[in-house]
Nucleic acid binder design. Structure first.
Length: 384
RNA sequence: CGGGGUGUCGUAUACCGGUAGUACGCAUGCUUUGGGAGCAUGUAGACUGGGUUCAAUUCCCAGCACCCCGACCA
């Protein structure tokens, strides 16, 4: 991607409403744009991060056999009445009506919608165990959205649902997802401490929250603030019963499937990554989710050779499938390019200028390191 | 939902009961290019409604929006 064409703009000043460091940097870097309270648009840079987060989660869940699908965000109120949650949940559940009067709700989570599917398709012993996953919008009529992306009215959630034949089988599944979640947070270089939690309105037997210590967090962990990155639920028969999710066991008898659900908020995870990885100049993205792998910067002035070399390197990297943001802007000074690069936070910065070209080299610097070093242009391919 | 606060160019802000200013951005030109460049010329703004007043962006009231604290929270 050529930066001269990149949609979005870095800002010297954060919008005055932004208080959370993640909100400030994501807004200043041109990753997101607030539409309204708790509602954000993702600009190209932010969207790339979001998609990378999705990719990491997808890979880890795929490893444990999750199948991906997707369900609607508008549900008939009927299925929420079936479990009683239509009346248990207050204003946070958005309710609306279709033409003709059908009562609908906006999905704040998908247990009901999933149970409705499971009821139809789970029939025999061999249909289980089953683990289904989706990335889908969640809508919650929050009394108070806050902290930029930390608490939203609309957000993208990875939510997986498991169905098992016995408690023992479910325990295995639960542990597998639990481990997958730990792998996900590890790949994002986030410290996520699992703690037993109240399952709240989700019901069921037990749940675990994955908590990341952070000053801005709104949850408590050993008396300190923390951000909830994910939540896993042992739902037991809470949804299986009202939705009659029966399978025929080996002995020919009908038995209820045991259900679990597992969720990670992608937007919040993105904000948490910034909260955990930044300095006073900007974001330091974990490699796994950085919007680009390499930030190539040319400081050519009027030196056409530098420009040409930069273009060459850019094209080579593209050809090799390296995700590179190429700062080809002619009207920006070195200082401004560096400042933008620090703010945007791509893990590896590569500078080519008359100075480096004299030595047939480019300068590389990791965003999280202080020192830069020169490498030969011919060796650029090996570094990445 | 209770409490508090704030609404001025795209962004951050200043001042003010009587002509709304600055910086950044953006545009054009010239100069410039290793840590947010210089000069010049442009561009663009008072949340909405009502009240007080000769006159309201400014004071008062209401609404709306946003932020913060709390309650709630998958």
């Amino acid at each position: 991607m050529k930066q001269s064409k990149l949609f979005g703009q870095t800002l010297r000043e954060a919008p005055k409403d932004a208080e959370a460091i993640s909100h400030i940097y994501l807004a200043r870097g041109g990753f997101v744009r607030q539409l309204s309270s708790g509602l954000f648009s993702f600009l190209p840079l932010g969207f790339r991060v979001l998609k990378n987060i999705e990719k990491v989660i997808r890979e880890e869940l795929y490893k444990i056999g999750a199948q991906e699908m997707v369900m609607p965000v508008i549900h008939p109120a009927e299925i929420w009445k079936k479990t009683g949650r239509y009346h248990e949940i207050g204003e946070e559940l958005w309710r609306l009506k279709a033409q003709g009067g059908q009562e609908l709700v906006l999905s704040m989570t998908h247990e009901e919608a999933m149970a409705e599917i499971a009821y139809r398709y789970i029939q025999k012993y061999n249909d289980l165990p089953l683990l289904l996953n989706q990335f889908q919008i969640k809508l919650r009529n929050e009394a108070r959205p806050r902290g930029g992306l930390l608490r939203l009215r609309e957000f993208i959630m990875q939510d997986a649902y498991s169905f098992d034949r016995s408690e023992a089988e479910f325990d295995k599944t639960y542990k597998k997802v639990f481990k997958a979640y730990q792998s996900i947070f590890k790949r994002l270089n986030l410290k996520a401490i699992p703690v037993k939690a109240d399952s709240g309105i989700m019901g069921g037997n037990e749940s675990h929250e994955f908590m990341m210590p952070a000053e801005i967090g709104e949850d408590k962990l050993n008396g300190k603030n923390a951000i909830e990155l994910g939540h896993t639920f042992k739902l037991g028969l809470k949804y299986s019963k009202p939705f009659n999710i029966y399978f025929t066991a080996k002995n020919g008898k009908k038995e209820l499937a045991i259900m679990g659900s597992y969720g990670i908020g992608l937007d919040r995870l993105m904000a948490a990554a910034v909260e955990a990885h930044h300095d006073d100049k900007g974001i330091i993205w974990p490699e796994a989710i950085a919007p680009f792998q390499v930030h190539l910067i040319e400081l050519s002035a009027k030196d056409v050779t530098v420009k040409k070399q930069a273009e060459n390197i850019y094209k080579k990297m593209i050809a090799e499938g390296i995700e590179v943001l190429y700062d080809d802007r002619n009207d920006k000074t070195a200082g401004e390019k560096f400042t933008d690069a620090d703010l945007i936070g791509i893990p590896l910065r590569m500078v080519i200028s008359p100075k480096t070209l004299e030595k047939n080299s480019v300068e590389i610097k990791q965003r999280n390191k202080e020192t830069a070093k020169l490498i030969k242009i011919s060796d650029v391919g090996k570094i990445i």
